[in-house]
């Protein structure tokens, strides 16, 4: 090579600088493009919720029109009604809000119900599903595959079809069995926490079990054996050692279970009256009212109900993706 060392270094340095600049520029462009795409997608999916929120802070005449009045002085009257349980007839800036379209708009009790039922049923269904999933993963027995198909098929029953049988079961059990045990008029299942929880647990069990099974499939069986060599029974091996390795999977399954429970409507409606109504059941009361739907109240109710799950989603979505990447859907 006839190039002097000095010149070579300079050229190399200049090249490197140029390359670095180009790379930085490319990097910047990539960041901008990729971020923009992600943001646009997110905003498209998020925008109906934003629009819906706007409905709750505007007088109805501004929203039930095209083109809508996007910017107006916000009124938070509906939030006072749904969050603070204030009487809809008072406190409205626009005068008296007409109370004709009836309904109890106070959303907090159902929100609490939804969260409590969601959390408890998730805990129960995951703790029931985990050992079952472990067994399905570790034991080879004759009807194993049939059992798996059966578990999956239970999720396919349209809820409509189970409505009356469930109602019948709950009321009959309460009146004939539990009343005899715990005294007249006891409601152990119908319109009770236990009854709703059981429904939500059952709705979640099939999906959770199958999801978790694939996580256990991923954990080497040598782990079990190691524990058992050391004197653990299989049960102990599972409770002391193995399930820790399935924790990310359990987290993912739990998140999905919570979401399913949060969304469940028809069966909850069937087995509850007033004590344990969840947000969807509460929301359905806005379906029809003779004097026109109270869209403002409904929008306020739904945005209020979205706040806790939004926080929940913000916290868990990383875990969800991470949990799902291990196990269930390995490439």
């Amino acid at each position: 090579m006839a190039v002097t060392p000095l010149a070579a270094t300079e050229v190399a340095r200049a090249d490197a600088a140029r390359a670095a600049r180009a790379m930085r520029a490319r990097h910047r462009r990539e960041v901008i493009v990729q971020t923009t795409v992600a943001a646009i997608i997110a905003l498209i999916f998020f925008s109906p919720i934003v629009y819906w929120f706007l409905v709750s802070v505007k007088p109805l005449p501004y929203t039930m029109t095209w083109p809508p009045v996007i910017f107006s002085e916000p009124i938070f009257d509906w939030y006072q009604v749904v969050i603070l349980g204030m009487d809809p007839t008072i406190g409205a800036k626009t005068g008296v809000i007409y109370s004709g379209a009836a309904g109890d708009y106070y959303v907090i009790p159902s929100l609490v119900n939804s969260v409590v039922i969601g959390v408890l049923s998730t805990i129960i269904s995951i703790s029931l599903a985990t050992p079952s999933a472990y067994a399905l993963s570790r034991f080879q027995f004759r009807i194993r595959n049939n059992l798996i198909t059966w578990i999956l098929s239970t999720r396919m029953m349209p809820p409509v079809v189970a409505m009356f049988p469930l109602f019948w079961l709950y009321t009959q059990a309460d009146q004939r069995l539990f009343s005899a045990i715990f005294g007249k008029g006891t409601s152990v299942l119908y319109d009770s926490l236990l009854g709703v929880l059981l429904v939500h647990v059952v709705v979640n069990l099939p999906l959770s079990t199958l999801l978790l099974k694939s996580f256990f499939d991923d954990i080497p069986t040598d782990l079990d054996e190691a524990a058992m060599v050391d004197g653990c029974t299989r049960w102990q091996a599972f409770t002391k050692v193995i399930w820790h390795y399935a924790l990310p999977g359990m987290a993912a399954a739990a998140i999905l279970a919570f979401i399913t429970s949060w969304n469940e409507f028809l069966l909850t409606l069937t087995v509850t009256r007033t004590q344990f109504r969840t947000v969807p059941v509460f929301g359905s009361t806005f379906d029809v009212s003779a004097a026109g739907t109270e869209w403002g109240a409904l929008a306020a109710v739904s945005t209020t109900a979205m706040v806790p799950v939004f926080i929940f989603v913000l916290i868990v979505q990383r875990n969800l993706v991470r949990g799902l990447t291990m196990g269930a859907i390995k490439g």
Binding site: N263, V313, L314
Partner: peptide, 17 residues
């Protein structure tokens, strides 16, 4: 994670609502 959270939010709106 912000975009992802905003994006998956529809999943947690109960279908009734």
């Amino acid at each position: 994670s912000l975009w992802q959270s905003l994006f998956i939010l529809p999943m947690v709106v109960p279908p009734v609502i």
